[in-house]
Design a protein around this nucleic acid. Sequence first.
DNA 1: CGCACGGTTGACCTGTATCAAGCCGGGTGG
DNA 2: CCACCCGGCTTGATACAGGTCAACCGTGCG
Lengths: 209, 209
Amino acid sequence: MQRLDQVAGNRSRVRKRDSLFWPGDPFTALYAIGLGTFKTVVLTEDGREQVTGYHMAGEIVGLDGIGNDRYVCQAVALEDSEVRVLLFDQLAELAHHVTALRHNLYRFISNEICRGQNMMLLLGSMRAEERLALFLLNLAQRYQTRGYSSCEFVLRMTREEIASYLGLKLETVSRSFSRLQGEGLIQVQGRAIKLLDSSALKQLVGQRC
Amino acid sequence: MQRLDQVAGNRSRVRKRDSLFWPGDPFTALYAIGLGTFKTVVLTEDGREQVTGYHMAGEIVGLDGIGNDRYVCQAVALEDSEVRVLLFDQLAELAHHVTALRHNLYRFISNEICRGQNMMLLLGSMRAEERLALFLLNLAQRYQTRGYSSCEFVLRMTREEIASYLGLKLETVSRSFSRLQGEGLIQVQGRAIKLLDSSALKQLVGQRC
DNA sequence: CGCACGGTTGACCTGTATCAAGCCGGGTGG
DNA sequence: CCACCCGGCTTGATACAGGTCAACCGTGCG
């Protein structure tokens, strides 16, 4: 696995608001996020955008490009970040010789499919508060696996981006935050979030979900 | 590519309403649909279901299982169908030696990601009629690439399944069908659909999408 | 034949969108 | 250093798409 460094190249810095790639760009590489957070968005014909992913350190973006030789979404840094560029040809070649890497590659790609299915579930059948609760719980879990606090974190997205991600409007997101806070389930201070009652949040999600 | 038959085993029949796999089943195989159609659904804790895919001959289901060693969704035959069972271990082994197959495997998995992103776009930002129009256009295109009529086909899902797939309720789907028919864009006779004005449908989708 | 299931349609309700006003905090320029 | 401005956020009032409930229809099957 250390041979990953061969293909990994150096860490490369990405400034806030900069993009790793744009829809239509020829697919050449995956990007392993070393530091920071990214959103992925797909653009509609009339210029609106739908946020399809919120990615943090340790995750990989660009997987959607493999199938088409072009990226279909855009990956935008939500803060100053660092990524490793994994040139796909080299990565695939290395994966060809290293079993563990090969399995992991399959795994990463497939997990992205599961993530998509979960988002479909969220977007297709949950109400606003439930979507937000699930979003927060999901973040909490991902922070936890990274060794950070699972009940206190800072969002890197604006209300509008969260809204797009959750298939809502920003006012609805704002209201949902307020309502969850009013019910004592979370504490909100701008983008700083504290989960006060995770089990109640889970129950909220479990009900209709 | 003919060697695919080695791993493909025989065509196996699946009766309408039967499932290829259930959520939680250990992942062993992909299924190449030879004949018929399948829906994939994810089940919610309280027993409700969200349709996440509508798959037809020539497509592959089960890709979501690779990452977890378990299937996360359920694949249900919507009519009597035939599939080829592709045992994944064997398939991966063969892909290891056959470049073209390897590329195709990556491609299939990755395309599933794109499909997910498009569904997120649909579920997150389109109104009922637009969702239905896009759904029909998508079907038309897939029938066309298979050599069937692109403007006349029979749906294999109930209104309720379509509704779940599109994040709506069955009554809304029914009304949307009626409205599109009233506007002269399609002709509906139960599950038999005729597209009368594809370009208008595309325009409808393009507007808000 | 008649039942059951899928589909359509109508009336009404509600959750979310839309429109609008105002707040807050941080960065900039006078 | 302060005033101002601007982007992000909250909150209220109202509109509307889609959900809900209910009645009815058609058809295919036991």
